[in-house]
Design a protein around this nucleic acid. Structure first.
Lengths: 332, 332
DNA sequence: TTGAAAGCGCTAACAT
DNA sequence: ATGTTAGCGCTTTCAA
């Protein structure tokens, strides 16, 4: 085939020409602004012309004109967490869409936070939702300077300059550790995933475990573990005699449990193990896995908050707290 | 606090003013186009001014001017599949970034494909990567008309108008079913997830199972199942006497296995079960789960393909095939 | 009820 | 070696 296989993309000017009206009229009709401004006959003409040409708006042009885009940005790291989070993201996407925003998940794991924030800022999103640890003060400043209206962080403590949804990673560790200690465990391990992007969360969870152990004659040992069977098996074989484990999350916890079983160490007899996320897998594991459940809250509320912050920027502050509680099962 | 908490975002004109040069010069310096055009002294001045003002480019303006954005769009559904895919996405994001593109995961599960394609088209992405079943001919046409250079589909058969990475969902079912039949199973179940967005894949996998059963005196029954313990348990209790199961993927397969075990039905004694994805969880399950492994291939190659297609659009065609093979374990 | 026109921030062809 | 300027597609004020 030679030449362009597709007709040049139609602009609103093309639509206007075909319909025999001005570009202004086209804009009013297609966006339904100022109802009653354009007569029904003209509306129909414009609609037909747009349809015929296969007209599709140009987000960049609109954003340029409006001074801001309708994008809401979120690091894609979040999406990889599991079904719980990804279902919730679906709801969030839907709720934001109803407010006229487009949720966009953006990668960039592992890179320099300020560099990542820069790429985000170039997209001039209306809002950014991100884990606090990835949002250095410099990054927040950069986003605001670039005109991002709403920066919403999730994390253990308020991020300066951003609204913060309090999500205490350390509380995950604290809850699990308190339970293990109550069960009589005194030598606690905390699994520290080797996978990129997880280290900041792991450190906070470890801190929570340490806090629970404080002044209680309990020893806490961080234990690195990659998400890999052979490594888990090697760890189980040379298990350093610890009697309680907080597994970072359910996946790592389950991996370790199987490895321990494989080398003949009883769970919970010899070692108690607790996870986090309360996946369905935790419930159906054998033994069923004690886990910290995270209540993500209604996505619609977060969407509404985002909308409010974009419409009328207010003082940054603490917004809401993600609640969590322990579900005790047979692994502890 | 009153007034704007942040300085107005600087434009390239501001940078030019501060540096005492023209906007053109700023553009040349910051983009490093035409090296040698600007003297070192001027370059330094411009850089310093940009730094001082916290200048950040404006992607929308650049896209408007260039006629296309540097966005590569992919449905976020993909991301929810699991660790295998999400790690791969990380690599893809990285590889695309090195070509100057920004990978964006976009939600929109469940909505009308053409409506979704419309929202995508408005962003004028350079490329769209999507599962074929979501790309109707109308959707592909819409994207092309909107100027999207590269539409790359994944699916069982070539999508008209798009390059296609052949990914035969039916082959997943065929491989698993052939194995089950070889093991002497004659009454096969195929789990059909109730979760939104998964039905198109499930139908194709079911078709693969049917193909394997063809002319072999094997009965195939689709069995709906939501990802939920109670539902799995109810299914197991009223198990319709089928002796082989293709579980859609590892997660559903594992869920069913546990439910069957719970009601005293032996796996693989009474029922053989196979999954797909070959998650680590399949390997550590008890019994270890037979699963179809999917070889996603190098993300760098796909990134290079995307780049090539954007630079010099060519005839759509079949690009590459995602390979898969069965890993036989104890569940069959 | 509709049209004309300015201008969002950027790049690149052309001029100096 | 650097500057001037047109124009990408859109919305919205102002004028008719």
């Amino acid at each position: 085939m030679s030449g362009s296989p597709h007709p040049a993309r139609a602009t609103s000017a093309d639509v206007a020409r075909l319909a025999g009206v001005s570009r202004a009229t086209v804009s009013f009709v297609l966006n339904d602004t100022e109802p009653g401004r354009v007569s029904d006959a003209t509306r129909a003409k414009v609609r037909a012309a747009a349809e015929q040409l296969g007209y599709v708006g140009h987000a960049a042009a609109r954003a340029l004109r409006a001074g801001r885009s309708n994008l809401v940005l979120m690091p894609a790291t979040q999406a990889a967490i599991g079904r719980l989070v990804s279902d919730w993201l679906d709801d969030l996407q839907q709720a934001l869409h109803e407010h006229g925003y487009t949720l966009v998940l953006h990668g960039g794991r592992g890179a320099d936070p300020v560099e990542v924030a820069r790429v985000w800022a170039e997209m001039r999103p209306a809002a950014v939702l991100a884990p606090g640890p990835g949002l250095s003060p410099a990054a927040v400043e950069l986003l605001h300077t670039a005109g991002v209206r709403a920066v919403i962080a999730t994390g253990g403590e308020p991020v300066p300059g951003a609204h913060t949804v309090i999500f205490r990673q350390d509380e995950l560790g604290r809850l699990a550790a308190a339970h293990l200690i109550e069960r009589g465990r005194r030598r606690l391990a905390v699994l520290m995933p080797r996978e990129r992007g997880l280290d900041v969360f792991a450190e906070e969870r470890l801190a929570g475990v340490r806090a629970a152990a404080q002044g209680r004659d309990v020893e806490v040992t961080p234990v690195p573990l990659g998400y890999d069977w052979d490594e888990a098996l090697a760890l189980a074989r040379s298990w350093p005699g610890l009697d309680g484990v907080f597994g970072y999350n359910d996946e790592y916890a389950l991996l370790l449990i199987r490895a321990l079983q494989e080398v003949g160490r009883a769970v919970p007899g010899e070692v108690s193990v607790a996870g986090a996320d309360d996946l369905l897998l935790a419930r159906i594991a054998q033994p069923a896995l004690t886990s910290v459940r995270i209540e993500l809250g209604a996505a619609t509320e977060l969407a509404a908050l985002v909308h409010r912050m974009i419409e009328e920027p207010a003082e940054p502050g603490v917004v809401d707290t993600i609640r969590m509680h322990l579900i005790i099962r047979d692994s502890t």
